[in-house]
Nucleic acid binder design. Structure first.
Length: 687
RNA sequence: GGCAGGGUAGCUCAGUGGUAGAGCACACGCUUCAUAAGCGUGCCGCCGUGGGUUCAAUCCCCACCCCUGCUACCA
């Protein structure tokens, strides 16, 4: 209904896939959410002869990469080189058909990001804040706003953050805080002069509201629209676009030593620099793809990225002034794996580069399985059993088998030559009508970014073929009415040919095999639905099987592998590096003793906090502890615990906490009590 | 805790103000051209819970519960 093809004609498409962060490999969650859908969309557009550029690349800046480099004792550049290579290669092998897979460490990207920053800077749009900023001398680094806490100057709330006071809602600057404290070291940070630039998102609230809330109410996905509405209703804050860091795009103005663009600012610009690089390599002009009103810009992303692509990046583009805004941002939800959240750190994932090695030649199986189970409207679960079923029951039994039986019959009866289309029966007519209708049905789903639906309809065309064959029984009719069989097989072959067309966006490797078998040359979407894709006497090659059965053992091996990595994780759990050495005196300063929990209740309006009353032997005191996610209040009453008793009292959510309960953290983040045993008495000192 | 999205058959998902649908799985039947594949039929559901609006609610309103994301919170 809200089909933009009807209301607005686009001359070209710029399609982007979220830039994967170059500190790890690609897994099935990334694929199902972003790369498979976007590739399907782009392949479909290309088949319609649309002018389209498909953009992706590695996002290579930001603090996490510097941390990873430090951990592995290599340079940040070495980190990103490694994953840029692995991921680019893996995408390519899966048939994700980016026109370019670029990277944000490329000089052209630095140039582009600088230019855009400079343009906005020259227009005086940034709010410049060159006052002093807090610096943690112990950690030797500037502190991000939310790594500083202190007392709110408006409401005297003692636990206000550097950017905002939770209590009264006022937005703050870190230096407004009374008695600031570094969250990193706990020390008092010192003020050090530094300059930063802010993008005044707040000044764009009206334009954004008009654009999104009024303009895209009906064509954006509900999750995307809802999230944007939430942000806009809350009101936007100016956001710093620079940071005191070495790794990144240098801030291109004077007096900005040691500063780079904040990674969220430079990353989406990576789409633009990638387009420029592609244009350069292919002798094209990049600008129409980003600056012309008749270009349709579409961002494929995961749901965690909505605010950057719907609010922040559009503001950057508007501020720059010469760019178009995205027409749609089809964000997907998340994919789980065998019931658990995919986790890179816990190694709970199916990695693309590993899949490609372990399932050679089965790219389409993964593409199909992930598309069919893509988390379009809500989180979804990938299981190996489902993967097996998608292959065996659908790709093989329905799709592959139909093609095979048709081609086998053609060879058996006609030596591989396409038989003539004779008289058409009523049943034929009905089938023909459906063949004609399918491309439109599939296209309609694709236009609305409903890829699951689209791939289902593709499979329905194969179902139609199977039903047609079963109904017409050519293997029987051949004995009584051979003339009729020619028509039946002609139509069946046309279905095969049509399948090879409409399946191409989803399972391109299979489409390729089919067009070779059928000797079909040019594949265009507009040809789909035709009944003369194969002409009488055209020669069909010997059929080869399109899919092979995936056995239980193969699946079990994968499930075992997951279980093993889970076990491995526990065994190999890398201990955190030792903290710097301390003196015996330092240790002696700590008063750790046993205590008993007397009362426990959840702190209102928090997820993690329990307010505990504990008996330390010397007193009964209140301690606030962040354990509510793993323990119910009633379960901790009576617990014998260890407490750090002489810790400076601290106000947490308006409750003064006296001391800290000692907990041990498992690798998955869950907690358990550190205890001296159940027979311990309260008030014993630990030394 | 705030905000957003979701909670529909064993599994993955559609859907509508008028006593619920598809695919897979399962059962039975038909078929044998085909990779033990195909086709047909059937089974399975207090449409998260409790209220309300309505002649009528799974779909509208309110409250609550659960899952996910963003955000706050872990001395």
């Amino acid at each position: 209904m809200n089909n933009h093809h009807q209301t607005k004609a686009f001359k070209r498409y710029t399609v982007t896939s979220a830039l994967p962060y170059a500190n790890g490999p690609i897994h099935i969650g990334h694929l199902a959410g972003v790369y498979v859908p976007s590739d399907i969309y782009v392949r479909y557009l290309r088949m319609k002869k649309e002018d389209v550029v498909f953009i992706c690349g590695s996002d290579e800046h930001g603090v996490p990469i510097t941390i990873k480099a430090r951990q592995e004792n290599i340079t940040p550049q070495q980190v990103v080189d490694k994953y840029h290579q692995i991921n680019g290669d893996a995408f390519n092998k899966l048939g994700i058909s980016f026109d370019i897979y670029h990277r944000t460490t490329a000089p052209l990207h630095h140039e582009t990001a600088s230019q855009i920053f400079k343009t906005i800077y020259d227009k005086g749009i940034f709010e410049e804040n060159d006052s002093e900023q807090y610096f943690d001398e112990k950690e030797n680094q500037f502190l991000a706003d939310r790594y500083i806490t202190g007392t709110c100057p408006h409401c005297s709330y003692e636990k206000a953050y550097g950017d905002q006071c939770e209590n009264c809602g006022t937005s703050l600057n870190p230096q407004d805080l009374i008695e600031p404290k570094s969250v990193l070291s706990g020390n008092k940070p010192v003020l050090k002069k530094t300059k930063h630039w802010y993008l005044p998102l707040n000044k764009y609230e009206d334009v954004l509201s008009k654009w999104i809330l009024d303009g895209h109410k009906s064509d954006w996905k509900t999750n995307v629209y809802g999230q944007c509405k939430s942000w806009l209703d809350h009101g936007l804050q100016p956001r710093a676009v620079t940071r005191d860091l070495e790794w990144g795009v240098k801030v291109p103005v004077e007096d900005s030593e040691g500063k780079v663009l904040y990674v969220w600012f430079d990353a989406p610009i990576g789409y633009i620099s990638a387009t420029r690089e592609w244009a350069k390599e292919n002798g094209k002009d990049w600008e129409p793809y980003w600056k012309s009103d008749d270009t349709k810009l579409v961002h494929f992303i995961g749901k965690d990225n909505i605010v950057f692509h719907c609010i922040i990046f559009p503001v950057i583009l508007m501020a720059e002034g010469s760019y178009i805004l995205p027409e749609n941002v089809p964000a997907n939800e998340f994919l789980n794996l065998e019931g658990d959240k995919i986790s890179t750190s816990r190694n709970w994932a199916v990695w693309l580069h590993e899949y490609l090695e372990e399932f050679p030649g089965k790219q389409d199986v993964l593409r199909y399985a992930l598309c069919a189970t893509a988390p379009e409207t809500k989180d979804n679960d990938f299981t190996w059993k489902d993967f097996q079923s998608r292959n065996n029951s659908e790709l093989l039994a329905i799709f592959g088998n139909f093609v095979n039986r048709t081609l086998v019959l053609t060879h058996k009866y006609y030596e591989g030559k396409v038989p003539s289309l004779g008289e058409i029966t009523e049943q034929d007519k009905a089938v023909i009508e459906q063949i004609k209708a399918f491309p439109g049905i599939i296209a309609n789903s694709l236009d609305k970014y409903r890829f699951r639906e689209a791939v289902g309809e593709m499979m329905n065309l194969a179902r139609l073929g199977n039903k047609y064959l079963t109904d017409e029984e050519p293997w029987k009719v051949i004995k009584t009415n051979p003339e009729r069989v020619k028509t039946v097989l002609n139509i069946s072959l046309q279905i095969c040919a049509n399948l090879s067309l409409v399946c191409a966006p989803f399972i391109p490797f299979t489409a390729e095999k089919m067009s070779k078998m059928l000797n079909i040359k040019e594949l265009l979407w507009d040809d789909a639905g035709r009944l003369d894709l194969l002409k009488e006497n055209d020669l069909i090659n010997q059929p080869e099987l399109l899919f092979e059965k995936i056995e239980d053992e193969t699946i079990q091996k994968q499930i075992d592998k997951l279980q093993n990595t889970k076990q491995q994780n526990i065994i190999n759990a890398k201990a955190d590096p030792l903290k710097p050495e301390i003196s015996f005196d330092d240790f002696q300063k700590m008063d750790i003793r046993t205590a008993i929990v007397l009362k426990a209740e959840k702190v209102a309006k928090t997820k993690k906090l329990l307010k505990l009353e504990v008996d330390t032997g010397v007193d009964i005191r209140t301690v606030v502890s962040g354990i509510a996610e793993y323990f119910n209040p009633e379960d901790v009453i009576g617990k014998k615990v260890l407490i750090l008793a002489n810790l400076q009292p601290r106000l947490i959510k308006d409750i003064e906490s006296h001391g800290m309960i000692l907990m041990a953290e498992r690798r998955d983040g869950s907690l358990y009590f550190v205890s001296a045993g159940d027979d311990v008495e309260k008030g014993c000192k630990i030394s």
